[in-house]
Design a protein around this nucleic acid. Structure first.
Lengths: 211, 211, 211, 211
DNA sequence: TATGAATGAGAATTCATTCAT
DNA sequence: GATGAATGAATTCTCATTCAT
């Protein structure tokens, strides 16, 4: 165990990253409630209390993780090829659906943001997160506005918010208990089944076409 | 204490209704986790154990409450005037947004359905709920299909599912902590504010127009 | 369901027997705590409250069951061939071990008698049970005394009490959790394994030889 | 509240011992079920949760208490004077009966071992307990084998197991409810009375004589 | 900075028993 | 005699967070 003390900013940042990485790994196979601060610390090679030197609460830690994941996602969106065309709505919708499908952790964290994370983190901590989020949504949103003539300025950000809502809502609907899933196979109920990615894409595409 | 016993089916139904009503009242001002079975029973004038004669679990009780609320909502939708016209998409969207705005309990229960309720209730109890839900969505969905030429058969049900996702997602986004709400007033962040009803309406209208 | 009322002593006795039989059947596969009065009543085709017309408590019901089982066991012992001989101790020990092996319900009930049953039944109810028990132990005990010269008058009853203690103690020791049973296979621990019937027989035989 | 923290192994052992001592004290006048973890912690001057830093479950705590009591008992047996003689069986029996009479807590814990403790403790925790038990039974058992020619190698351990069964069985039989105890004074029933220590001694002595 | 022992709140559920009808 | 709705007591264990060293 690193009895060594992170003195310089660099090694402190390394500790922080180790904690985030550990949390991310554990969150892949367990729910937010199941992942404990003790496990995260241990997986990062630190003592329980040490985690609290870097993150004020468990929720703050996951907020940082979400910020990291979002940053990476926006990076991808910022470089994605976008060209004005008559099927631009579908292009954009597919871009969202595909890039998010590859990021299940991000999707699950987005489902935690409002109900779990924001409710247990001080406003001072959320503020920079929100500011950065607004910045990047504005930046990438502008690129999207550029290829979709029906979007007015500011609608790019709004698209992100609507997509967020769909991601969260559809995410919940597709997490079905196995024994219930069996029942949903009945012909009367099979219409209630929701496939996350195709549904997200279809919703976004329709929404953009009709914007 | 009411040593009186609900003997006939009628008075038993009254007890059941009293419990649902008590739960509904408590749920208005508290979260699902905060409302306890003890409180519900007491509010209904019954002993703690009595609630379990009518509902196998806390989740089963709230599932029944949701079923009741949904039934009432579908009743309203089934009688709402719907006429084919070029702004039918907006009419339908407005109908959803308005009727749901008046039913905050229903909206919050919908947010509980997949993550909390269905995960803790036996499949046998969910099955009739789902069947009835499918039935009514089919019934009202058909009415909606009739006024929206772009909807194919079955799209009515799909519309309900997509609306459900939006309701849940937007519902979470609009539950903002007061201190955070203050910060969202800043000019850089005000775009992130989500007003539930107008947003739901706009999303649904756009989606239907572009269906 | 028998809405018919047991008026005469005969049909009342039939009800009583039905309850005992139901309890016995359920107790074969479940523990005392797991068997509920509701289950017993239902299995006997009666309502829950009706069981309390025949037995004042759950423990009283099981005391009656034990009395029944004991009576049958004593009947067998009373007719078992017993002949004085130099290996009479082993004969008697074998008789106990074999007849009890065939009566697992009796063995389990004996383990319940002191800790569970007698602690929750009024003394007035235990008295006739004890009197009858003393009577039969005296009766069969005398037969045993007759073939074992080392036994003085009264030692037959004492033998029963000691056998009871062994039955209970060995009974507990042979109920080992499956995962623990695996560990007991180790060479260092295999000596700790106890086989109920052979051990009971060996203990009783040695005890009688050395009486 | 003792915000003081047991830092070194020594003070941690002291905390452990304090918990065991507290549990032992409470168990003297209450049953296992009546003694709560909260009471134990409080009696040890600790918070409820702290007990779980030292023992994974309530049963694990009582298993440790039993181990401690057994260790002390075996220490006494290991140093008890044992000499071969024609009344060695009675000597050994008396040794068991007397030393156990002085240890009512040990006797009651032995009655808990199979039914309550082992059923609720992980096999990993029971294993070292069993191994140590086998070791000490072997050690003291060998001493006993040395003074009793009728015992073959391994019979010492077997003696302990049989004694355990008797201890448990007789222990239950001598825990009679006061009101029942009055009835047992009747001349027809006084034969059913069991005095724990003399009876244990007599049983063991006879068993050893007839081994 | 790092540690890790100490803290303490928090709620669903079962089932023997009763008693009004 | 039969019913069955109503009663209500009772307790473990987890884990985020703190803070003395």
């Amino acid at each position: 165990m690193p009895r060594t003390r992170a003195r310089d900013a660099e090694s402190k940042e390394a500790r922080r990253a180790a904690l985030l990485s550990a949390a991310s790994g554990l969150f892949e196979t367990q729910s937010f409630a199941q992942v404990t601060m003790g496990e995260i610390s241990a997986a990062a090679g630190l003592a329980k209390g040490t985690a609290y030197l870097y993150f004020t609460t468990k929720e703050a830690l996951f907020l940082a993780l979400l910020a990291q994941e979002l940053e990476a996602w926006f990076d991808v969106l910022a470089e994605a090829p976008l060209r004005p065309s008559k099927d631009a709505p579908d292009q954009v919708a597919a871009l969202f659906a595909e890039t998010l499908s590859e990021r299940p952790t991000l999707v699950r964290l987005l489902g935690l943001l409002h109900l779990t994370i924001e409710q247990n983190v001080s406003a001072e901590l959320v503020l920079p997160f929100k500011l950065r989020l607004a910045e990047r949504m504005g930046e990438v949103g502008a690129r999207i506005e550029a290829v979709l003539p029906q979007l007015s300025p500011g609608d790019g950000v709004r698209l992100f918010l609507r997509a967020h809502a769909l991601v969260v809502g559809l995410g919940q609907m597709s997490q079905v208990k196995p024994d219930l899933d069996v029942l949903l196979a009945k012909p009367e109920l099979c219409h209630l089944k929701v496939q996350w990615a195709p549904e997200l894409r279809a919703c976004l595409a329709a929404m953009l076409r009709g914007w």
